[in-house]
Structure formats: structure tokens, C-alpha cells
Design a protein around this nucleic acid. Structure first.
Ligand SMILES: [Mn+2]
Ligand SMILES: [Mn+2]
Ligand SMILES: [Zn+2]
Ligand SMILES: [Zn+2]
Lengths: 141, 141
DNA sequence: TTCCCCGTTTAGAATCGTTCTAATATATTG
DNA sequence: CAATATATTAGAACGATTCTAAACGGGGAA
């Protein structure tokens, strides 16, 4: 136990620096919440609340700024499954999602498990950026 | 040419009645725009604008009400591809979409062309409501 | 046909997630 | 430590959507 900064925090600071982002108190706090445990799906509001509970003091605007900066740096990706709010995903690899509307929950589906066949080629002048599968779930009757 | 109502309009009025919706001037006007030509993807705003251009007088609130009522009746479905606005689709059958973000345009991909393999089974207590594939397009470099 | 009821429409206000503004604070470098 | 560029923030603004409550009108009954 060192007085300040675990290995994980040092690594995170390095990741932020590499991404051209100053490792501010707020970014480090959010980065720890996002990247310390396994893959996560958060909204700005859920992450802001979680940060507040963890004792971090930061504004919602900063959470939005940070989520977008992390996304632009490739540390996060956005997932569109619901018109009402934007989800951010710490798993930036190729994968898909279950989405349970009734509890607004995302669950990863590993990308290598899924095979999609028969997609038409992209229209002229366009190219495929990404193929996303969303499996909508409802409670079993 | 009869004084009022083509076959298409008569059919539409019947469809609305069957759905438990009174065939009001506004609903018939929107229904004609939506269902007279082939499959379409609209937003509330785009449909409102189109109705205005066609000489219909109706409020944006009515467009929202009508789109939701048509959706609840199974005449339309919603497509979530963009956090910013909600798309409504006159094709309620099983199919998927290309989405060109740069021009906010949806293009249908027939459902029977696409085969998706290797999806995990739904989590306990949940069942699959629908599988949606969105192919995001970007302009070719 | 006229009357009446209740579903429908509507303007405008409210809501909600998100973005913007511009003043303040802080990380970094010399 | 000073200088500078970046980052944070409160609160306003925004855009899509929903809500409210008053006016309207479809359509069955008489
Ligand atoms: Mn919104
Ligand atoms: Mn919205
Ligand atoms: Zn994910
Ligand atoms: Zn479609």
C-alpha cells in the first residue's frame, strides 16, 4: 500500500496521457469506476450518481464531457438501444447486446459467437462502419 | 372519380376502424401519406412537414399521438438507430436496416435474406422479443 | 336531421436528456 | 512560482417529446 496511487491508477493515468487527456481528479475518478471492474454499460446519469456515492465531487456536465472524450479516444463506445438515453460501453471490441427494456439493462453477447450471413452489400458510395445486433428481451410470460 | 374517397382511402378508413381508431381527417391524412406508397421511414417532424406541404392542417402533437396510436395498433413499428430522434417504419414485418448517419437515412434489408447464427439463449426469465440488425454506413473515403 | 357524448385535436406549457456558455479552477511547463 | 492552456462547472439553452386542459367533431341515438 503506497501513500498514493495503486498500479491500476498509474496505468489509468498513463492511458489518459496517451489519449491526450490530462489526468484530472474527475477523469481519474470516472476512469476508476469505469475500468476497474469488468465490462460495463453506463449512462451519464447512472455514472454521475455512482461517482457521487463513491464520494467524488463532479458535475453532470463533466460526466458528459468525459464520456464523450473517452469515446473519442476509443476508451468507450456508444450503444443505441433506446431513444430516451445514451449508453456508453467499456467493451469497445466487436460484440452485440441483449437489451431488456423493462429494466433498461444491457448484456453483452460476444462478437465471435455470432455469425451474420446474407447481408446485402453497402449502397454505392457507402461502406459498412459496423454491424450491430440488438436482441430485445421481454419478461417471460 | 367519385366525389369523395378512392378505394385506397376506403381501405384505410376500414383499417383504422378495425384498429379501434376513428377515421378522423388528421388520421386519414397521415395514413395516406404513410401507406399509399411503398415502405417508409419517418420521424414525427418529417411527417408533420410533409403533411403541411400536402395541405393538411394538423398539429405536431397530433402527429405524435397518431404515430404512437398506429404503432400500438401494429400499423407501424419504431426503429431505434439514433439517440436524437425516433423513427417510425411502415414495414412492420421482420427486417433489418442500413443506417447512414451522415444523411440520417434508413434503408430496409429484407429479413429473409439475413441469417443470424450463434446467438446465446435469452437469460433466465426472459424471452426474445425481436432481433434487430443495424448496419451503420459511412461515406466511402 | 339534430343532439349529445366522448374520443380527438390542439396550443402551449412542461419535461427530460443533453449541450452550450462563460466564468472559475487547475494541470503542466518553464 | 508564474504563465498558459486546459478542464470544470453552474446554470441557461436546446431539441425532441409528452402533458394539460380547453375546444372540436365523429357518429350513434332518437
Ligand atoms: Mn432529448
Ligand atoms: Mn429525446
Ligand atoms: Zn457491451
Ligand atoms: Zn424498415
Amino acid at each position: 500500500m503506497r501513500a498514493s496511487g495503486s498500479k491500476a491508477v498509474t496505468d489509468l493515468v498513463q492511458r489518459l496521457r496517451t489519449a491526450g487527456l490530462r489526468p484530472t481528479r474527475q477523469r481519474v475518478a470516472l476512469g476508476r469506476l469505469l475500468f476497474s471492474s469488468g465490462d460495463r454499460h453506463v449512462t451519464a446519469e447512472s455514472l454521475h450518481l455512482e461517482a457521487a456515492k463513491a464520494g467524488a465531487q463532479l458535475s453532470l456536465a463533466t460526466v458528459y464531457n468525459t464520456l464523450h472524450q473517452f469515446t473519442a479516444s476509443g476508451l468507450l463506445r456508444q450503444v443505441v438501444v433506446d431513444g430516451a438515453k445514451t449508453y456508453f460501453d467499456t467493451n469497445t471490441g466487436d460484440h452485440h447486446h441483449f437489451y431488456a427494456e423493462d429494466c433498461a439493462t444491457l448484456i453483452d453477447i460476444p462478437g465471435d459467437a455470432v455469425v451474420i450471413d446474407g447481408l446485402p452489400k453497402a449502397p454505392a458510395g457507402m461502406e459498412i462502419e459496423r454491424v450491430e445486433v440488438v436482441v430485445r428481451l421481454k419478461p417471460r410470460v
